[in-house]
Amino acid sequence: MIRHVITAFVLLNAIVLIVTYLTYVERKFAARMQSRIGPYRVGRPHGWLQPIADALKLLIKEDIVPALADRPVYNLAPIVFLIPSFLIFATVPFAPGLGLADLNIGLLFFLAVSSLEIVGLFMGGWGSNNKYALLSAMRAVNQIISYEVPFVLTALIPVLLAGSLKLSLIVEAQRGLWFVAYPVIGQLAFVMFLLATIASENRVPFDILEAESELVAGFRVEYSGMKFALIQLAEYTHMFGVSCLGALLFLGGWLGPGLPGPVWFLLKALFIFLLVTWVRWSFVRIRVDQILGLSWKVLLPATLALLMATGFWVALRSGHVA
């Protein structure tokens, strides 16, 4: 019991630290892509104290609650938004035996808990009593209903190949060959997973719910100070969590030569995060109808077909089909 509490405490703090620095990595990465330098002034070398300075700044900013906001809902929203994004790490195995709880239903737990995030997001959008926020929350619901299905279906492909929902077993099944390297199936599934990931993280080109040019900042437009910081933290934590999931499902988690397991795992998660960031800073936002059309008309049938094909392949290989 005590051991679990300590592990959880260490894990939580490690994640907060990693996620804080992910924002720094993203800013530097984006700056490089645009021939800028990015944060440079705070801390030597290369402004490495910038995330800490940002966090401190947000801590001491004034907390403003709109007069007509639905107060309890408005105040609770950042917390409800934050909890699931941290909870998803409960089942993530960073290395064999290094994780909080390697559940039998690890993947399902991950998907279930991350689907709760929409509740917090919507509380924020509704509670602010702001038209932009509400429109953004509406768009979020639209998008999340649409992309939840292909996201779950692509995540099921590694499950079929590994024959288990347990994340550590899925990684162990990739000892010979990472799932992303499986001919045709692997690459297609990985691309679809990335697409669904970007949509579930609400990033460009799927960022209609924050769309700076039309909705200001979306559902968080009324939030300031620490509440805003919590929402940002939750978003980046979720991104990091989904990147970890991608590393576990397709890139063989902690497997790799030379370096220790957790290092490999974090490098792979970082790779997926940077892939998504690369897409974010390269493309433009697409329209709502294009986003929904892509999900229902292209991604959903494609993932279903791929799932069927994977099923047949697994059955053929195991000799159940003559």
Partner: peptide, 13 residues
Amino acid sequence: AVQILLYAGGVIT
């Protein structure tokens, strides 16, 4: 997990 995924996540939405 299914209860959360389908009801708390899906139906509520």
